[in-house]
Structure formats: structure tokens, C-alpha cells
Amino acid sequence: MSMISKSDQVNSQMTLDQLIALDAIVAMGTFRAAAERLNKAQSAISHQIRKLEAELGFDLFSRDGYRPSLTTEGEVFYRETARVLEQVNGLKSVAASLRSEQEAMISVVMTATMSLDPILTVLGDIGRRFPATHIRVATEMMGGPLARLMEGDADLIISGLAGVPLEEVETLPVDTIIIRPVASPSFPAAQRVGIRSRREMQTYTQVIVSGTGGQDFDQSRDLLSGGQRWTVSDFEAKKSVIKAGLGWGGIPVHLMQQELANGELVQLTVEGYPPRHTEIFAIRRRDMPMGQVMSRLWDDLKQARQSMPEPDSNRWKS
């Protein structure tokens, strides 16, 4: 039964705000959460949707359950809404670029698990093209890059997608990294070949790296529960502790190629801890306008990715 009342059957014109409200409800799951996200009263969001439904002539949401769910017609309409909002965001970026001046500084924050090499050429070209712009490049651990982006302290991050609110960002694939569990050849778990069980590995010290994202952006991966842990600040410290035979842990392969080659570190095969392949992306917020330099950097990253072959995970294998 339609929820549209006769009082709602008035002449109206579809607005961008109505489409944004629809998108927020679908993304957040409730009218209340959508209102909080858009910093509006819930009654205002409900009114916008009622007016939109009145103009369309059908219900967008079924309100029978605890959470609103899209009707069949609503699902079709929402798919088109998402395309329209994508185009609107693109127009906003173009307009911002056209009216912008060269930024005094752009901030790029990278995950410490990745090498700078895949983007150095692009950054170098940007630096030569825009010598008046200071390019700040920083590295952060775990959820640190995402925290800097969402807090407005980074224009661009190079990171994995764990925890990233995809509806709020644009992404470009950059590279793939592999993290493997390793230990010193003198470490007890490395003394024989074969798969080490989780129970056995819980008797050894696992070395982990602390995140820099704070509580709201904390990320914990590849942790074995129940065992002793050492926490260090970065991968170089982690590698030193593991090389000293004081524990085991996962390290990006590109950061330990020399140690693997000369035998200072050996790979472990651990139950429930396979080598982890992580896709790395360039990520920017949709609601942050791009100036001339950021627009050029984003376009250059896109062109560089299109001209590269698909990431070959075998290049990191030892």
C-alpha cells in the first residue's frame, strides 16, 4: 500500500538535496543516521523524501520494518541517482579546478607498508611543473593514512581500503604488496620445515607494529590471539627485533628482499597466516575540492596506472 498521501500530491521539482538525502539514507541505513550525516533534522530528511516520492508517484522505501528498505522501484531509481551524484561530484571537481589557484602545499600520506617507488616519477613531474607548491610526503602506520584523510590533514593518501568509507572517496589502483610471516633462522619456529600450527605459534612472541590512526581508525590484522606480543613503532624496528631472534611477524616483502636473499630472515608457513596480498590505492575525499596541483596529480596518477600492466604479485616472490 502506498505511503504517499493526497496532501503530498503537489507540484514539485526534483532537487539535488532530495537525491543526496536518498543516497544518505541508503548508505547509512536509517533516516536518523542520514540526518546526522547531513547535519539536518530527521523531519527535514523525511519531508524531502515524501516530496520526492510524491513527484515520482511511487514509494522509494518500504517502511514496514525497523529499517527502511528500498522498494523494487526504489532500487531502480537509486541506481540512477548514484550515477547522477557521481556526475555532480565530477562537475564540482571541474568547477573547483577551474576557479582554483596553485596550492601553496599539498599533503600526501602513504602507508608505511608500501614503497615510494610507484609514485616517485609522478611526484617528481608535479614538483618540476609546480615549483611554487610545497609537496609534503609522510608515512603512517595501519589506519594512520585514513585518519589523516578524514581529519582533513591530507589531500591524498596511498593506502589499502580497510575501513575506508567508499561512498565518500574516489580511488585509483596503484600497486599490490605482499606481506609474509618471517623469522630469524635461529628462531625455534624456523628450525624445521612444514606448517606451524596456530597453537605452536601462540607459544612464541609475535612482533607487531602500532598504528598511528588513533582509536577511531585503529586497524589490527594478522594477529594471533593468546600469545605474547612485542609492539614497535615501525617496520625497520620490527625487522631488527625479528632478525635478533626475539620474535616473528609479517613484513612487506619489498622491505626485506636483501635479508631474505642473504638468509638473515626466512619465511614461515603458519596456519591461518598466509602471505597477504593487499591492493594499494590512491584515495581522495569527494568533498574536498582539488586545486590545480592536486587535479594534475590525480590525472597523472590515473594516466600512469592506465599505461602500466596489471600488478604482478610474482615480482615480490622470493
Rank of each mutant, 00 (worst) to 15 (best):
F61Q: 01
V108W: 14
N314W: 08
E101M: 12
G291W: 05
A21E: 00
K238H: 04
R128D: 14
G263E: 13
L16T: 12
R229W: 11
A82S: 09
R199F: 08
I283D: 00
T121C: 06
I280R: 09
T205S: 02
H47W: 02
R180Y: 13
E200K: 10
R128K: 14
S5E: 14
L297T: 08
L265T: 14
R198H: 05
W316A: 13
I45A: 15
V253W: 12
H277K: 15
T205W: 04
I242W: 04
S220H: 09
S7V: 09
S69C: 12
S307T: 09
A261I: 07
T176G: 01
S225G: 12
L19D: 06
Q102W: 05
S233C: 07
G124Y: 03
G29W: 00
Q228H: 09
M14R: 11
R221L: 15
Y66V: 02
V193E: 15
G160R: 08
A24W: 06
Y66W: 08
F281P: 01
A304Q: 07
Q191R: 15
P181L: 06
S159G: 05
Q303I: 00
E80S: 06
I283E: 03
A33C: 03
D216V: 11
Q292R: 04
S46D: 11
E53L: 13
T71L: 03
G143H: 04
L224K: 02
T111N: 12
G272C: 01
T176E: 14
L246W: 10
M201V: 06
